[in-house]
Design a protein around this nucleic acid. Sequence first.
DNA 1: CATCCGACATTTA
DNA 2: TAAATGTCGGATG
Length: 921
Amino acid sequence: MNIAQIESNLQNLIKSFSKETFIYDLLLAYGLPKASITRLQKGNLNLSKSEGEISWKKKLRFQEEYSADLHLTISELAQSIKHEERFVIVTDYELFLAIDSKTGEKLDIELAELPKHFDFFLPWAGMEKAQHRNENPADVKAAERMAKLFDEIKKDNPVKTEEDSHALNVFLTRLLFCFFAEDTHIFQDGQFTNAISSHTAVDGHDLRSYLESLFEVLNTASKGRKDLPAYLNAFPYVNGGLFKDSFQVPEFSRKSRQLIIDAGEMNWKDINPDIFGSMFQGVIDPEKRGSLGAHYTSVPNIMKVIEPLFLDELKEELEKAKHNPKKLNELLYRLSKIKIFDPACGSGNFLIIAYKELRRLEIAIIHHLQDLQKAAAGFNSKSEQLSFIPKAQLSLAASFQVELFSRIQLSQFFGVEIDDFAHEIAQLSLWLAEHQMNVEFYREFGKTSPTLPLKEAGKIVCGNACRLKWEKVCPKKEGDEIYILGNPPYLGKKEQLVNHKLDMQLVFNSQDGFKNLDYISIWFFLAAKYCSNTPKCKAAFVSTNSICQGEQVGNFWILIFSQNIEIIFAHTSFMWKNSAKSNAGVAVVIVGISAKNGSIKKIYSSGKIIQTQEISPYLTSGTTTIVTKRSRPLSQIPEMTNGSMANDDGNFFIDHEEYIQLPSHLKVYFRQILGARELFYSFKRYALWLKDEDIEKALEIDLIKSIVNKVAKYRAGSTREATRKLANTSHLFGEIRHKSGQALIIPGLSAEKRDYIPIDFLTNGEIVSNLAQVIFDFDPWLFSLLSSRLNIVWVRATSGYFKKDLRYSPVLSYNNFPVPYISDQRKQEITQCVFRILEERERHSEKTLAQLYDPDKMPAGLREAHRQNDLAIERCYRSRPFESDEERLEYLFKLYEKMIAEEKVKDSLFEKEKKGRKVKK
DNA sequence: CATCCGACATTTA
DNA sequence: TAAATGTCGGATG
């Protein structure tokens, strides 16, 4: 059941209204199951015994009320809820009251108005309001209304070509402007909607020609207008390019005409152009409709970008200049010259918020100038506080008049957007924002520049930012102050489609490892190019955190830094959220860059701000050492490999219960297998694992034959050639790295919050899956090393992550981990710590590793054992104990650099020696 | 041949 | 129903 259907159901319900069935019809209108409603009607689902009252568990509490005050009745009912009824409804079939017992929202309307408030009961249809929690209801409603209108128009006007689609987009944008205009005094109140309802036919046939002439009127200055009927001539000249070109207006039906009038009757005054645009875009694009505005950036997140990028600094300037009229004027001038550029602007929310913030700052500056002038004139109530201001400044302030208009123009705002509709909306939203700020300006000063005719528009280009020349979109003159910002798309290497890959190829031009980079790296790269050697130009984007982690760091940041660029501020990983979608399942960072300038850098991390001279690509302070993949350990430690990958579509695996029930002659063909989950939660899982000598015999068994066949079929159907080849050996794992004997298992992924990476010994020949790493030939002290605080600190700094959870990788974290020389005696001491940790784990053998290593519940004994272990390990590094993780990391990086340097020396000596030998021969 | 990563996916509280 | 926390195997070097 979709929203449009529900609304029309409600309209029918009111049209063919019946007291007796009203409440049941209402439930039916929201798509609740007919069978349940019949049972409710018969009484066997109704939990209430009183006459005229209905109670349906978790759904509804309903009462007819004719005598008492309805408001009293409903508040009594709402306070005595017994069966978690979601909605309480009381009505005398004229007045209609409802309360949402979960959110506390109230509805108080005439029954006939019910269809207009259809959204109140959407939770019955499984559409939780939480989806748009904290969202301005006006935006949601407007977006939904427009979606309905859009669907209806498309029915009568099939979109065949790109031109059709563009014309429709332009039309909707213009319509939106008219709705907004007539509710915000740009037009007269209701002028647009009234004109349609009184001057066009009910069946909609002449609405098209009417709108065509109206749009022409809006594009014509009063001088050029001839022989117009008064109701058309009453519309003002809009200009600004919004109505400039003529595009085909669609045909209308009775229904679509009515939808326009209905939409016009909404209050468009409360629309937020910054958010609404994104919601609207989600509604219009059928592919994105499922994830309504899922990727738009919330205002708090936009502030996280613009404050450190330029706003904080401008505010500081204002604070410094507030008693100096000359400097205040200079600041006003500066604001009028700043350029803001969003090369992935969508419907423009970054630009709009930046615009509004600059306008507000301008208002504050003008206030200060006025205060100074009042103080100079000696009649300001604040004049006493201002008495310390030098006379010269005051007389300067008195010597000119502050002109009350805004110096900030939309033409200072630049954008690129690939989606035609979004780009139209961005343009429009900027105008709407301008008008809103004009209104705010008027409230402050009683004066403002008129909104109409619209001035020059924001410079939003529809195109692919990866291929456009950015300097053509946002021209750069010497000395220009330019801020590039936005939230470009993220696509990991696997998610990129052919077009994206081509973009990557064009931009990175076969740079080392560019195919591993996320799609967003294009924006950083082009921004770096734009900012390079341009001191007053800075850029900051919201980005997936993966570009600052793991393998991408090595390939990506070296490229950025090579353009004489540095990171000027950063927000470390936080989970992406906005009100349209509570969790997009991605952790993001915000990174600001500019040409090198030696300024103080800021790292924003979980509410704290760290000031530093240098920010590393890992978004930590102090070092730009980059750790790259390494195939063998740097230190004297044994080799670590990934576990064995089944590549079986789950067919090899059986759980513990299935294993128990296997006849014993089959059990021998299965082995216990562990990945991270099994390790943490003590699950037992088994997988088919045939030894060479068993293969022939085993393949005669039906059960095993059927498993192998399924795996073969799955592998043969793969898109990947290597996997299809594996179909020939479908009785085996796809990748086998198992060795017999003892093994040390290290989880491939471990929760962020843990203080230690829980690792374990395997002694019964269990198989380690590809979801964990394994070391086969090792001394026990290695357990201690990998369990140490030092190790997790290193891994946190250098490894990749999955959202915010640590990913353990042999080639990034382990092979690069610097370990000093450790004497045999030390190793023996350390081994004692291993036994102690194992003993402490044994004391709580009923607990899983996940429970034992939950930092809030970690048993004191185990914690102490780890502390002792840390002390023992750290003594191998240096005699003085470490005081913080920062200190540990700094030490490890220094040691790493030293060992890398030594290795280089050794390698070059080795090379020389080799050459020398050749010469001798 | 080896392995990193996911504008995620699934379980848990 | 939000919060917690790791699957699985393709793409890439």
